[in-house]
């Protein structure tokens, strides 16, 4: 019970931000919260946010773990392109759905192993190590698709991007279930603590007997796997693998989601739930901008301004000032109370 309240306290700022943004969007675009049922699927802007936010949410899950180890994974956008391309070409060659998914996710894991080895074994700084795959990965994806958009129409694969269960789009289930699973694994075991300890002090962790190399590689593999899932969803969504554009710049949105979620880029304590809310905040801003009807020249400006406000409000100084203010008020209240009694 206490733990639950503490967890809620941890994500309270993110939830408040999300609520504020949703209210803001609803003010600009009335009808925002309308949800109807059409053709057996729920239809409305909040559903769009959950659905469109799926790739960034998935990336944010893996990115949170990587960032908790004081790393960063810039390659996730390119890994999305690779896994999408692998899925499209596998299904085009007549492989079954299971084999296709295995290959696509396997490609993501392989990319993760590559990043992990560069970081954990060779000791290359994560930002540089993953930059390699960020640049080269898109080229690999283009080689697989031969530069064209590889389209497919396999109903099973399309279901992953556009199918619905109980009216909700499939991608929503995928990111929520993945988030829950990863959250349970890291929090119900000591794994999360070990990951945090690497982020806080790699050497001390190693000396304390943690197999940091294996754990680091595993963390990058998790990130690669999440990116691969996002890539398959993105490809299934447009019924084709677009190696040039799939996941382009999404690594930055994923990092932003983690940061908005309050996980420090310096590693250590992390919260997957908060990162997921961060992803939803970003998507709410994106969808809100699209609904608002402002000219596209303002898109980036509006997004940047909102993000800036969020980050300023979350900055250590502001949080400290806010806490101090509350403490002063509390003590004042306490004094008043004691004066009355």
């Amino acid at each position: 019970m206490n733990a639950g309240i503490r967890a809620l306290g941890r994500i309270a700022p993110q939830l408040a931000t999300l609520a504020a943004i949703l209210i803001l969007v609803a003010a600009v675009f009335p009808g925002f919260f309308d949800i109807s049922l059409a053709n057996g699927r729920l239809y409305g802007s909040p559903i769009d946010i959950l659905n469109r936010g799926a790739p960034v949410a998935l990336l944010a899950i893996g990115m949170t773990l990587v960032i908790a180890t004081r790393g960063i994974d810039l390659s996730v956008g390119a890994v999305m392109a690779i896994s999408g391309a692998v899925a499209a070409s596998a299904i085009a060659q007549g492989l079954g759905l299971a084999a296709t998914l295995a290959l696509a996710l396997g490609a993501g894991l392989l990319c993760g192993i590559w990043n992990g080895i560069l970081v954990a074994v060779l000791g290359i700084q994560p930002i540089v190590a993953t930059l390699i795959l960020m640049v080269a990965g898109r080229g690999i994806a283009q080689l697989i698709t031969e530069g064209a958009i590889l389209t497919f129409s396999h109903p099973g694969l399309l279901f992953i991007g556009g199918g619905t269960i109980a009216g909700l789009p499939m991608p929503v289930f995928i990111w929520i279930i993945t988030g829950l699973l990863v959250g349970l694994i890291v929090r119900r075991t000591a794994l999360g603590l070990l990951i945090e300890s690497i982020g806080v002090n790699l050497r001390a962790s190693r000396l304390a007997g943690i197999n940091t190399k294996i754990l680091l590689v595993a963390v990058y593999m998790a990130s690669g796997l999440c990116a691969a899932m996002a890539g398959v969803i993105a490809a299934a969504d447009i019924r084709g693998a677009d190696a040039n554009n799939a996941g382009l710049w999404l690594e930055l949105d994923a990092i932003l989601a983690v940061v908005i979620g309050g996980t420090s880029l310096l590693g250590g304590r992390f919260s997957i739930l908060a990162s997921l809310i961060g992803a939803m905040i970003i998507q709410s801003v994106n969808t809100g901008i699209l609904l608002s009807g402002f000219p596209p020249e303002f898109n980036l400006l509006i997004k940047a301004t909102i993000i800036l406000i969020i980050l300023v409000l979350q900055s250590p100084r502001m949080v400290a000032a806010f806490r101090a203010g509350r403490r002063v008020r509390k003590t004042a209240e306490a004094k008043e109370e004691s004066a009355f009694s």
């Binding site: 469109r52 554009n245 699209l290």
Partner: peptide
Amino acid sequence: TRAKGKEVMES
């Protein structure tokens, strides 16, 4: 792009 075209059309 196809993906953005789809997302924007949804909105």
